[in-house]
Design a protein around this nucleic acid. Structure first.
Length: 165
DNA sequence: GAATGGATTGTCT
DNA sequence: GACAATCCATTCA
């Protein structure tokens, strides 16, 4: 269950990958909505976006955090091959962590999110309040309030959200 | 053909 | 709170 997302909209958004104009890397953003846009970040983490329709502008929604519902054991294995325990709430907390838990890689780029091995289902709001605020981890375009998350959800990323033991 | 810089995370101080 | 790990598309010569 998706609990945290960020929007990246148009070439005028300096933080959007489409900011430099069409390139081979960001081509998915210009494609039809409903496709997955996966890319490698910091040379280490794969991040997954859902390409959206934004009135002709290249745009996508970054999936930043999930509440795991099924396949918890498999997620544990992927996140921690050495077997150390990861709290359920932390399995998919953060954009890099969730792709690792789900096994999403560069080969999943351009998958159809409506009819492939990687799908997003609309099950409506299942509880909690939706909060909006600044996007995280970017150096430009911070002023745009295009991050939204389930308020108080334990799987939402960000330093402030990390619980102390 | 070589240099550059991240939509992050985990570890160390 | 600071910083290293790590790779590929872009940019510049």
């Amino acid at each position: 269950m998706i609990v945290e997302t960020e929007a990246y909209i148009g070439e005028d958004d300096p933080a959007c990958h489409a900011a430099p104009g069409p390139t081979r890397r960001n081509a998915p953003l210009y494609g039809p909505p409903g496709l997955a846009y996966v890319y490698l970040n910091y040379g280490i983490h794969y991040l997954v976006n859902a390409v959206t329709e934004a009135e002709g502008h290249p745009a996508a929604v970054l999936i930043r955090a999930l509440q795991p519902v099924e396949g918890l054991a498999l997620m544990q294995t992927r996140r921690a091959p050495d077997g150390h325990h990861i709290d359920d709430d932390d399995l998919c907390r953060g954009p890099g962590n969730l792709t690792r838990a789900l096994g999403i890689m560069l080969t999943d780029n351009l998958l159809d999110l409506t009819s492939s091995n990687l799908v997003v289902e609309d099950r409506g709001l299942t509880g909690g309040k939706v909060a909006w605020g600044s996007r995280i981890g970017i150096r430009v375009g911070v002023e745009k309030p295009w991050r939204c998350w389930v308020e108080g959800h334990p799987s939402v990323s960000g330093a402030k959200a990390r619980r102390r033991t």
